[in-house]
């Protein structure tokens, strides 16, 4: 059984090593106030629909900008160097991942929480009924 102990100890060493390296991958949801230029944070918030949403392939297919209000009520411009996700305007809330750059938040990833696409409990009527 001694070898089993050795394995056990090795696993614990690996496990601790994992926890140390993985703790950097995890963070709690932050606010715009917590955002810094050199560390990545995740911020949840809502789209400010009254402010402009810019994505225009005519000028730049790799520039998408919008305004988001975080949970504390602070609003900031968010820029993503990519295309606008589908159903963006429909989103109930947004989670962005990225860093602060001057007065803008540069998002590397945008996750949308949309109302279910699977249209639960919606009555569909015939058009010519």
């Amino acid at each position: 059984m001694k070898k089993a102990y050795i394995i056990g100890i090795l696993m614990i060493v690996f496990g601790i090593g994992y926890l140390i390296t993985a703790s950097g991958d995890v963070s709690s949801y932050a606010n715009f106030d917590d955002a810094k230029p050199d560390s990545t944070v995740k911020i949840a918030g809502n789209l400010v629909k009254s402010k402009p949403i810019v994505f225009d392939p005519n000028t730049n297919a790799n520039y998408f900008s919008f305004f988001m209000e975080d949970k504390e009520g602070k609003t900031m411009q968010v820029v993503n160097y990519g295309a606008k996700p589908q159903d963006f305007e429909m989103s109930e809330s947004i989670v962005i991942t990225g860093q602060l750059e001057e007065d803008k938040f540069i998002a590397s990833d945008i996750l949308l929480k949309c109302p279910s696409k699977y249209k639960d409990q919606e009555v569909l009527l015939r058009k010519n009924g």
């Binding site: 991958d25 963070s27 995740k42 991942t97 990833d109």
Partner: peptide, 16 residues
């Protein structure tokens, strides 16, 4: 408690 999340899933899993 606001909850914790993985910042960037793909590199996180790939790494290990």
């Amino acid at each position: 408690f606001v909850g914790i999340v993985i910042n960037d899933a793909i590199p996180h899993y790939n790494k290990h």
